[in-house]
Amino acid sequence: MALGLLNGLRYTASRLVKTYLSDLKHLGRRYDDALLKERQSVRGSGIFTVQYPEERLPAPENFRFIPFLVYEPALDENGQPKIDPTTGKPVIGKQRCTACGICAKVCPPQCIWIVRATTPEGKPKPQPAEFYIDIDVCMNCGLCAEFCPFDSIKMDHVYELAGYERQSHIFDIHTLSKPASYHAQIHPTDWAREEVQRKAKAKK
């Protein structure tokens, strides 16, 4: 008797039916965010296919792809961030980076390259003049963000970085810089913790 085989087939058939049952249960509610979360979770059943690139899986907060540099935006008279009309991005007020070079030292594939800024007299300033990351070499390990003492380099969630030229994959300081508000938006928990530390430091 081929009982084991038949049992196996029964299992396959039941899986097939279950898939459609859960589809039927949520009929017409495909693009519901809450529902997507439920069906993708450990408690979900059936198969749910995310229609990439129209749909995307939500990235968890700790997700890391290539690094970016955090800057504090310049403020206008009302205390609001100034927006650059040509790019639509907030104007850079101050880079958090001090060009200390720890990220470049700790980077396992050595893809970070920093030039320290100098004052007109030729003395080194705690600011980067240039900051490059070769994102083809970057192995997305996140060690730079982990060891940055100034919370100025963080791991981004953007993962669609295909380009037509090799040269376009060397990100300079303008491409890498993103406002602190962006960091707060994609890393809410980390941001909250860093703010507490920052305030404690400021009090001292």
Partner: peptide, 16 residues
């Protein structure tokens, strides 16, 4: 040995 000195001291970037 890493960290390499050359990659962030030369003043220009060269592809690997």
């Amino acid at each position: 040995k890493k960290p390499f000195g050359s990659r962030w001291d030369q003043g220009y970037h060269i592809l690997a």
